[in-house]
């Protein structure tokens, strides 16, 4: 743990080195402990201002960042798409420049366009943290998934991680793929062929269309949420058909090794990608992911927001 962090922004896991990823996870270990104290707050970012700028709706990621900032004693402003001037025709850059004029030190951005955080990071002095950009990356979700795996299994290297669902449109899947492969995990992607194209194998992962073949060797199954609201008909079978082919049903869960972890980034669709019995079962670490998300986001805010600019 002797490395010197020197990034003001966290845009994705693709550009991070394995050492940088491990450094964030070790820093998160220290911040996770803060959550067990009587006073769950440290002055690390006292006097700094964080802006939660969510152009796409999100409750859990936004509140997780918000609570993380509060626990670091930073001040927080929340701006959502409907309340921002974006609806009045202001460009993203102008909105961001206005935020900077308010001396926002850290900008947490959720945006429907891939690359929006990078666009702003290059133009602003503030730290920019990507909280999900289009189908590109969601680095803090990837980090908290990896943190949870590492916490439960003691390592990531050589583990077999199966990610199930709509990989094509999933930023969560991409961040997981980049981070997990860098740390030496074996990753298999499973889902309908329309949503899991073979091209993903270029990223150093395996693609499979038969979930029952891969579950018996899985150390972790990460089920992505089926986003009905943005699912296009031509890509997607019916919900019932999806559950039959790819859902982690009670019966299918019997194929899992006893120590296999079941993960889900939430919010879960009970009965669609996962049965209630499995989501609430002993192998599920879904709520650990939520707790760990807070520690990981504290670490990211501390590292990116704490460096001298």
């Amino acid at each position: 743990m002797s490395m010197n962090w020197n990034r003001k922004d966290l845009l994705g896991l693709r550009e991070l080195s394995p050492e940088e990823i491990n450094f964030i996870l070790e820093t998160a270990d220290a911040f996770k402990q803060v959550g067990t104290r009587e006073i769950k707050k440290v002055p690390a970012l006292r006097g700094k201002t964080m802006v939660n700028f969510f152009v796409e709706p999100s409750t859990r990621t936004r509140t997780s960042f918000e609570l993380a900032a509060h626990r670091l004693s930073a001040d927080v402003i929340n701006i959502s798409a409907t309340t921002s001037s974006l609806t009045k025709g202001e460009t993203l850059k102008d909105t961001a420049r206005n935020l900077e004029a308010l001396h926002a030190d850290i900008l947490v951005l959720r945006h429907s366009s891939a690359g929006a955080p990078q666009f702003l990071a290059q133009r602003l002095k503030s730290s920019v943290i990507n909280a999900g950009d289009g189908a590109h990356e969601h680095p803090t979700q990837g980090l908290l998934d990896i943190y949870t795996i590492r916490e439960r299994r003691g390592k990531v290297d050589k583990l077999h991680i199966v990610i199930v669902g709509d990989i094509l449109f999933s930023r969560v899947a991409r961040s997981n793929i980049f981070g997990l492969t860098k740390l030496g995990a074996r990753v298999t992607l499973v889902g309908p062929s329309t949503l899991v194209p073979r091209e993903f194998e270029k990223l150093g992962v395996t693609v499979s269309y038969k979930i029952d073949d891969v579950l018996p060797t899985a150390d972790v199954v990460n089920l992505l949420r089926i986003q009905h609201e943005r699912q296009r008909k031509e890509y997607f079978p019916g919900i019932g058909e999806y559950t039959t082919l790819f859902g982690l049903t009670k019966e299918r869960a019997k194929l899992l090794k006893p120590d296999c972890l079941v993960m889900h980034p939430g919010p879960i669709n009970r009965g669609v990608e996962i049965d209630s019995e499995v989501a609430d079962g002993l192998q599920s670490v879904i709520l650990d992911q939520v707790t760990n998300g807070l520690a990981v986001r504290m670490a990211v805010l501390y590292l990116c927001g704490g460096i001298a600019t």
Partner: peptide
């Protein structure tokens, strides 16, 4: 007892202090 996250000079030093878990 970790002191890094309780320091009052974060952001003013070139090197960010490494945080450790308190126990």
């Amino acid at each position: 007892i970790d002191v890094a996250m309780h320091r009052d000079d974060v952001g003013t030093r070139a090197e960010l202090p490494v945080v450790h878990a308190s126990k």
